[in-house]
Design a protein around this nucleic acid. Structure first.
Lengths: 223, 223
DNA sequence: GCTGGGGCTGAACACGTGTTTAGCATTGAA
DNA sequence: TTCAATGCTAAACACGTGTTCAGCCCCAGC
């Protein structure tokens, strides 16, 4: 991006080392540690990227590009929102990417943002597909539900990881597997049958807030 | 804790300022900024608490004590897990506490840990009560479900906050209210009716992993 | 051969951090 | 009044950070 016909090897080695270190230690990781990982002097890192922030930005672009590529590869493998997590768990090659994304989500960085937006967008498509196939119940606000499902899944994973940090941060596939081992049953149970026996709380809320904030196709039931 | 008959005012002022700054800026907040907030020199902070880590620990104790007190006050007001969030939203006095807790959860600190453990413990009680009252469906693994519900609620809130950081970090009540405004409907809808129309995915999982990791009262259905 | 240029480095700089130390000012007691 | 203790601070220290700079080495081109 920066220089048209750039060096192929050293620059990329530094960038990849940075992605890895950022994924493991967060974006507070020092330039010196990245340089050591790449087998290079700290000065060279700055010489190639100008500053740590620009290195960070380039790592962001790189990870987003990898995500796009990975998604295009497996575009029709996935059938539901948590299918993505299974996909991650199955392929350890995506481990640095997931770690990087989670760090970026935690920092509110642009990668986390766009990643989440993409996941939500995908989830909207998946749920729509599932509804048409008769597998998923329609929601009163599809956009809000897709957003909630993605945020809750990602949030649960994040808290689980900060609460029980894995011994080997590179084994993110194992992390996701552990996460699913403890959370999959309650999640799937919740998705299948809910928790409430009555519609009371939902109806009370619907009475209180008449219409969903989506496209106003239906009339508000009261007031 | 440190000195038996300590000064009542200045020390507490520093501690309270630290809780607030930690809640707003995270635990990376500098000793100098805390000292400025308390209208005091940085050296005095160290003089009173020994080190930043000890100050952090004392803030942890303080917040946990406040939480305990607040919980005892409103012990029977709450009827469900998300009732706690409503309670928070209703009373802005708890704003610094919630901010502090969320920061601590994000850092995997001891306050976040014990807070989550307490929330899970409470959730177990609430769900048990709800089941006996016929309002909540029993789960195949009550402990896992309670844990999942707490983690997902907290995780969703955390991601929402890092994604859309509020202009005024002190107005945590408003933050929670905003959060509920976008997430309450999909959450309550999910809790009421689930998302799946069939039991297929749940049954497949139950077939794959025979018995819940709880107390082995029931026989595994196969193998 | 030489020569120049670029990848690369060691050493330093500027700055922010937590912490220490010497000492100020005020206050209560002898 | 004098002394000592206490609450408190300004200044400095040690360290880690991102970054800069002068100059190394190696290799392509003449």
């Amino acid at each position: 991006m920066r220089s048209a016909s750039a060096d192929p090897t050293t620059r990329e080695r530094i960038r990849d080392a940075a992605v890895l270190r950022f994924a493991r230690d967060g974006f507070g990781a020092s330039v010196r540690s990245i340089a050591t990982d790449a087998g290079v002097s700290p000065a060279l890192v700055i010489h190639h990227f100008g500053s740590k922030d620009e290195l960070h930005a380039e790592c962001d672009e790189r990870v987003l590009a990898e995500i796009r590529a990975a998604k295009n590869e497996t575009i029709d493998e996935l059938a539901s929102g948590q299918g993505i997590l299974h996909r991650f768990a199955a392929a350890d090659e995506y481990a640095p990417m997931l770690g990087y994304v989670l760090r970026s989500v935690q920092d509110g960085g642009p990668v986390g943002r766009t990643f989440i937006e993409q996941m939500i967008e995908d989830a909207v498509g998946y749920t729509k597909h599932g509804i048409e196939a008769g597998l998923i119940k329609p929601s009163r606000d599809e956009a809000a539900r897709a957003r909630y499902l993605v945020l809750s899944a990602l949030g649960t994973l994040m808290i689980e990881l900060t609460l029980n940090p894995p011994e080997d941060p590179s084994d993110i596939g194992g992390m996701v597997r552990d996460f699913l081992a403890t959370s999959y049953l309650p999640m799937i149970e919740l998705y299948t049958q809910g928790v409430f026996t009555t519609r009371r709380m939902l109806d009370e809320y619907l009475l209180y807030v008449p219409d969903p904030p989506q496209d106003p196709a239906a009339e508000p039931p009261s007031a």
